[in-house]
């Protein structure tokens, strides 16, 4: 599968993180547990597709489209 931003996948697709942008926000996302190899899926989105609620395995994290674009994922 080609790597794409998290925001490009429909709700429910099982995904795996392949990389996170190398900037301040990327560091923050990493601290929140979004690291390479992390399995996740989009649970649901607010109207207009933003923010997104992400199933992180043991908790649900919400983030905006702009942040989701920094997270490259592949479907598994």
């Amino acid at each position: 599968m080609i790597d794409q931003g998290l925001n490009d996948y429909p709700n429910g697709t099982p995904l795996i993180v392949t990389s996170v942008a190398d900037n301040l926000l990327g560091a923050k996302l990493t601290e929140m547990g979004i690291v390479e190899g992390k399995k996740m899926r989009v649970l649901y989105r607010a109207p207009f597709g933003c923010p997104l609620a992400i199933d992180m395995g043991d908790h649900v994290l919400s983030l905006r489209k702009a942040e989701a674009r920094l997270i490259m994922v592949a479907s598994i």
């Binding site: 926000l25 923050k28 929140m32 923010p51 908790h59 994290l61 919400s62 983030l63 702009a66 942040e67």
Partner: peptide, 9 residues
């Protein structure tokens, strides 16, 4: 600063 929302549900 860059603007972001990271919030646990």
């Amino acid at each position: 600063d860059p603007n972001f929302l990271l919030m646990e549900m």
